[in-house]
Amino acid sequence: MTDERPVPEGVTWIDDPRDPRVRDYFQLTDVALRRVLEPAEGLYLAESEKVIRRALAAGHRMRSLLLTPRWAADLTELVQPALAAGIPVHVGTASVIEEMTGFHLHRGAIAAMHRPELPEISDVVHDAQRVAVLEDVVDHTNVGAAFRSAAALGVDAVLVTPRCADPLYRRAVRVSMGTVFQVPWTRIDPWPGGVATLRELGFTVAALALADDAVSLDELEADPPDRLALVLGTEGDGLSPRTVESADLTVRIPMGGGVDSLNVAAASAVAFWAVRDRGRS
């Protein structure tokens, strides 16, 4: 133990980065946390104090907490309720935790959280005017960034297709700054068959894609429908032809400088800003 800073009573010091009591943090990848530990729900990792607090505020349940000594001493508002509820709180030096997890713990705190059961689409979009659909976006950073933009720019719900990266993967959660817990979301399956489901629920479905018959985002911004579902595609290939054909309209972001498109995270921010419900801004 190289850090003698006092920590709260009841915490467990971890000196061995392969201690079986902290196996959630070293033995299992994001995929394994989701599929192996508890197949009915699984787990995910929430990194940093702010993200953990947002997860708890959203009603998610903590399985265990892992901190460096400084944060164990400072975050008594997280530590004491966890200990009182019988949730294990582990403390290790920064070097032990880095060897354990394989990455540097920037904010000194990480929690293993129980995955919530995903809600039905109809429940997620019941009161929504603006919905984002992420089709097969495989980069966790882009998923997290899209959620952060959705939270900031008035998107009421996010739907992710079956092959889209999981919003609860550690990097996606961290990049989103915990807004994956703030914006209601669920998976839409099958896809693109789900376009018909959205239409039945009263949404105009707009595909963000390059196409000869695409309308400018400026036109959509000037006269947006009351309920709009904006579909954004995967990195590189964009939306599938079937999705574009199924949508009510195709929309493109006007470009200059010889550039034909933006990164999906940047495109999401531009599109969300343009179609935001100004009555609620």
Rank of each mutant, 00 (worst) to 15 (best):
V180P: 12
D237L: 13
A196T: 00
T186H: 10
F103C: 02
L230S: 01
E135D: 14
H140A: 14
A82V: 01
F203K: 04
H60Y: 11
V251G: 03
F103K: 10
F147K: 09
V231T: 14
T204I: 05
I52E: 05
T234L: 02
A94N: 09
P81F: 11
L67Y: 10
T29E: 00
D237M: 12
A84H: 08
G257M: 15
L105C: 09
R171S: 06
M113Y: 00
V91C: 12
V7C: 08
T197P: 03
R35P: 00
A150G: 13
H106Y: 00
D277K: 13
R18V: 08
E41Y: 06
R23D: 15
D213F: 02
G154F: 03
N142G: 02
V160F: 11
A73N: 14
A46K: 10
R18D: 06
Y169P: 02
I253M: 07
A172N: 10
L65A: 15
A58L: 06
P6L: 05
V275S: 05
R227W: 12
S149H: 07
D16K: 05
A222Y: 03
V133Q: 11
V195P: 01
P39M: 14
A271K: 02
E120P: 03
D189A: 13
R107E: 01
N142V: 06
A146P: 12
D127S: 15
D218G: 03
L159N: 10
L134V: 06
D218C: 06
A128I: 00
L37Q: 12
V180C: 03
D123P: 00
T197F: 01
T101I: 12
L228P: 06
T161Q: 08
L65V: 15
A229I: 07
E117Y: 02
S149P: 11
V158M: 13
T197L: 13
V125K: 02
G59L: 04
A111R: 01
